[in-house]
Structure formats: structure tokens, C-alpha cells
Amino acid sequence: NKASVVANQLIPINTALTLIMMKAEVVTPMGIPAEEIPKLVGMQVNRAVPLGTTLMPDKVKNYE
């Protein structure tokens, strides 16, 4: 099972992601793969992401 990116804290809307905000966890359904964490640093979320929520591609601005 592959790990996904999960919010390590509440991430407010329009916040630029940092390493400390994210952790890798095996979750269902799968979100953004954990190996993409370095790519996500500096990207902004387009909505608030509660603690423990899986980061889905549609929650990150300009994620492809």
C-alpha cells in the first residue's frame, strides 16, 4: 500500500505548504502520493484542510 499526503495540522485556505504541515500515511481513498511532498512545498491550498485530512489534487492550486 502506498502512502498519501495527510495534513499534520489545520492548513488555512491559501496557505503555502511546508514540510512540517504534511505527513505520509496509508489512507483510503488515496490522495496525492507521499513521494510528491517535496514538489508540494510552496504550493498553496485552495481551501482549508483540517488536521488528519488527506490532501487530494483538487485541494492544491496548480497541482498536476
Rank of each mutant, 00 (worst) to 15 (best):
V26I: 13
N46W: 12
E25R: 13
A7T: 06
M56H: 10
G42V: 07
M43S: 04
S4T: 04
A24V: 08
T28H: 13
P12H: 07
K39Y: 14
E64F: 13
M21K: 03
V6L: 06
N62T: 06
L51N: 12
I37F: 02
Y63I: 03
N14C: 14
G42M: 04
Y63A: 01
I32P: 01
Y63N: 02
L40K: 02
R47D: 15
V5K: 01
G42F: 08
M43L: 11
M30F: 12
M21T: 03
S4M: 03
I11Q: 01
A24N: 02
K23Y: 08
P12R: 08
Q9W: 08
M22Y: 06
E36L: 11
L19R: 11
I11D: 03
V6R: 01
Q9E: 09
Q44E: 13
K39F: 13
I32D: 00
K39C: 15
T18S: 10
E35W: 14
N14I: 06
N1D: 14
P29C: 09
K61I: 15
P57Y: 09
P38H: 10
D58A: 08
M21L: 04
V27Q: 00
V41H: 02
E64Y: 13
T15P: 01
K2N: 12
A34E: 05
Y63G: 01
V5M: 01
E35Y: 13
N8G: 10
I37N: 04
L40C: 06
V5L: 04
A7F: 03
V49G: 02
V49L: 10
K39V: 11
L17Q: 00
T54A: 07
P57K: 06
M43D: 00
P33N: 08
E25S: 11
Q44L: 11
P33S: 10
L19N: 06
I20R: 14
P12W: 08
M43T: 02
D58E: 10
G52Q: 00
I11H: 01
V5R: 01
N46I: 14
T18D: 02
P38N: 10
I11W: 02
G52N: 09
L55Q: 03
V45F: 00
N8D: 07
R47F: 11
T28Q: 12
M22H: 00
T54N: 03
M43N: 01
E25C: 15
K2G: 15
T28E: 13
S4W: 05
P57S: 06
R47C: 15
S4Q: 03
T15H: 03
V26Q: 09
N62W: 10
A34G: 07
V5D: 00
I13Y: 08
Q44N: 05
L19Q: 07
I11F: 04
M56Q: 09
M56D: 07
G52M: 04
V60T: 00
Q44C: 13
V49A: 03
P33L: 10
N46K: 11
A7G: 03
T28C: 15
T53P: 02
E36G: 02
D58W: 15
A7E: 01
L10N: 15
T53C: 14
L17H: 00
A34V: 05
G42N: 04
R47N: 11
I11K: 01
M56Y: 09
R47T: 15
K39T: 11
T18I: 07
G42S: 01
L19A: 09
T15G: 03
A7L: 04
T15Q: 07
G42K: 02
P12L: 09
M22K: 00
P57L: 01
G42L: 05
V45E: 04
A34P: 03
L10K: 07
I20G: 12
K59S: 15
I11Y: 04
V27E: 00
P29Y: 07
N8W: 07
N46M: 11
T28N: 12
A24P: 10
I20E: 12
N46A: 11
A24H: 04
P50H: 08
A24F: 06
V5P: 02
V41E: 03
S4V: 01
Y63W: 12
K59I: 15
P50I: 07
L51I: 13
Q9K: 09
M30H: 12
K59R: 15
T53E: 15
E25H: 09
K23P: 04
L17E: 00
V45N: 00
A3T: 06
L40A: 02
M30Y: 12
M43V: 04
N8M: 09
V27D: 00
L40V: 02
P50Y: 08
N8Q: 11
M56N: 05
P38R: 09
A24G: 10
N14P: 00
P50K: 08
M21N: 10
D58M: 05
